[in-house]
């Protein structure tokens, strides 16, 4: 694969984390404009760990994701009272506060004669762990997709258990769910923390791939985009957000077919898509239809196999 393609795939992978993070909250019926905050928090925390404290990459990544999860846990409590539009605006306010704090956050140490660390709006240079450890771009892309598969596997596992049912139930009708004995507080906080950690993994990966981060990368546009990806791809399955990211970054931004007026095309396409499929390409009904098709063909294949084997 050539360098450009590797770069594209890596970007698609990293942005997928934040799209999945918004998707987890969409499952529970909450629209968040603020998942970029956890992406940012983890990018900074893991960058500080590897570039300034001399940690290795993996502990740095775990630390970043953990800090993002902790921040999500703290945010979950005040936002529990907010619903619908209020939640969306509350998370927006939180994320902008985080970004503006990073604009004035300075914490630098001298390493080998040069200052390293976050320098307010000047950004945070020199997160060079990957570069210095001779990890190639291809290897790093594999790391990204390894982690992405792990997150996807986790989300599919959730979907098959009671937890997934509870998340979707809360998304459908909170009051009804509570009447069925669902502890709303517990599961809402849990969903927020899961979403925070997922965004955090992406943030740590982002910081180490780019070696340089600055607060304005993590602006509200990133958050609204990641929310939109889930809705374009569909809310029925965790593949939905990936389709959204793939369409936007993978196809339009990278192939440069529509250089200069990409958003005119993409914006129009999304608006048209939402007229015909208001819950995305792979919405719940589509996923259900695919699953039942699958089930209809799968038993047939199995019976055929057993029929073939019958003469033995």
């Amino acid at each position: 694969m050539d360098d450009h393609l590797i770069q594209v795939f890596s970007n698609v992978g990293m942005i997928s984390f934040i799209a999945l993070s918004a998707y987890v909250l969409l499952l529970t019926g909450e629209i968040s404009f603020g998942q970029q905050a956890f992406f940012a928090i983890s990018a900074y925390a893991s960058g500080i760990a590897t570039a300034m404290w001399g940690w290795a990459f993996w502990p740095g990544l775990v630390w970043g994701a953990a800090v993002a999860g902790a921040a999500a846990f703290l945010l979950a409590w005040p936002t529990l009272r907010m619903r619908g539009l209020y939640f969306a605006i509350g998370t927006l306010a939180f994320a902008e506060m985080v970004r503006l704090i990073f604009e004035i956050f300075r914490y630098q140490v001298e390493i080998e004669g040069e200052l390293v660390g976050p320098d307010g709006s000047e950004g945070f240079r020199g997160i060079r762990y990957i570069f210095e450890s001779d990890i190639s771009a291809t290897q790093y892309m594999l790391i990204i997709y390894l982690l992405l598969s792990a997150v996807l596997a986790f989300l599919f596992a959730i979907e098959r258990t009671r937890l997934g049912a509870i998340f979707r139930m809360l998304g459908e009708d909170e009051l009804l769910a509570e009447m069925q004995g669902v502890n709303r507080t517990y599961y809402k906080v849990m969903a927020t923390v899961i979403a925070g950690v997922i965004a955090g993994i992406g943030g740590a990966l982002y910081a180490h791939m780019n070696t340089y981060i600055e607060p304005k990368i993590f602006n509200v546009m990133l958050g609204v985009h990641s929310l939109a990806y889930g809705l374009i791809g569909g809310l029925g399955t965790a593949f939905g957000p990936l389709i959204g990211v793939g369409l936007d970054i993978g196809l339009l931004e990278s192939t440069r077919i529509f250089t200069g007026y990409r958003m005119v095309v993409f914006g129009g396409l999304v608006a048209l898509l939402l007229i015909f499929r208001p819950r995305g390409l792979l919405d719940e009904a589509a996923v259900h239809a695919i699953k039942s098709l699958w089930r209809r063909f799968l038993p047939a294949a199995q019976t055929q196999r057993s029929n073939n084997r019958a003469p033995d």
Partner: peptide
Amino acid sequence: LASMVSSFAIWMQLEE
């Protein structure tokens, strides 16, 4: 929700 995301898409379109 679709309306909101759609208005965001049109935002991107107008801005560009």
